[in-house]
Amino acid sequence: MPEISQRRSWLLVGAVAATLSLAACSSFNERSRNALNAITPYKVEVVQGNFVSKEQVEQLKPGMSRQQVREILGTSLLNDVFHSNRWDYVFTIRRQGVEAQQRRLTVFFNGEVLDRFEGDTMPSEQEFVAAVDARGRAGKVPVLEATEDQLKKFDTAKDKAKTAEGDSPSAALPPLPPSYPPLESGR
């Protein structure tokens, strides 16, 4: 019998807590409600389809084979059974706080040869990256390749540092072992 009375007392405590929380909810003022409405859940970025750049469209020429078009644009998103001479490339991106973007390119074939293509004006790769960059940094993409002069300056600076330490530039690398151990142990 003590279990039943203990269970009833927990139910009573739960009912009182629920009643008090409902009363507290109704006492929120307008400013508190606005603050709660400002909090929005995270929405996943949705990217669908094939991004086709301006540079890719510029490579298309009438008379190309289907394989050549596929190598430039990739496999089309939509292949219609009833229109086998038409490939549709559709790209959509939905991000939180940004208007959804959609672009379309349709490629028409005459048999196995590209006849024509039509669609939206496509951005260059650099324009697209700048448009979707969440950090909002706009600017020039840095060059990630060193010139020959820059490499020579680095090598001479490294050699000077080694000679200053008393080492010769060729002594910077450890000697190679006479033989390497086997990759697998013998069984």
Rank of each mutant, 00 (worst) to 15 (best):
H83D: 04
R104L: 12
R31M: 05
L105V: 01
E165M: 15
L151S: 06
E165L: 15
L114K: 01
Q102A: 15
Q96E: 13
G14K: 03
L114E: 00
V81C: 07
D133E: 03
R7I: 09
T92L: 09
G119Y: 00
R94I: 09
E55N: 00
V113D: 01
E165A: 15
V13S: 09
V113F: 05
S9W: 10
F51S: 02
L77S: 08
N85V: 03
N79L: 14
S27P: 00
M1E: 14
G166P: 03
Q59S: 03
E3T: 07
R135T: 14
R94H: 10
E99G: 14
E58I: 01
S124D: 06
S170P: 04
P2L: 15
V107F: 01
Q56L: 02
A38D: 06
P2F: 13
N50S: 01
C25Q: 10
L144M: 11
D88A: 10
E148I: 05
A171Q: 13
G186C: 04
I4E: 13
N85S: 11
S84P: 13
L105R: 02
Y42F: 14
V44I: 11
P178H: 11
I93F: 04
N50T: 03
V47D: 04
D80E: 10
I39A: 10
M122V: 02
A161V: 13
K160N: 14
E165N: 14
M64E: 00
F51L: 06
R33T: 02
D133V: 04
D167F: 15
K162Q: 15
M1C: 11
L77T: 09
I39C: 07
T163Q: 15
L77N: 05
S76C: 09
E184W: 11
L12V: 06
P174F: 09
L144Q: 05
E127K: 05
K162R: 15
P169A: 12
G186K: 10
T19L: 14
E184Q: 13
R86E: 06
P174N: 05
K153R: 14
L114S: 00
P2S: 15
A38H: 07
D120W: 03
G136M: 02
M122P: 03
F109V: 01
V141P: 04
G14V: 04
S179N: 09
P123S: 03
N34I: 11
R7E: 13
A130V: 03
R187V: 13
D115N: 12
V46T: 11
S179R: 08
A131S: 08
R86A: 04
F109Y: 07
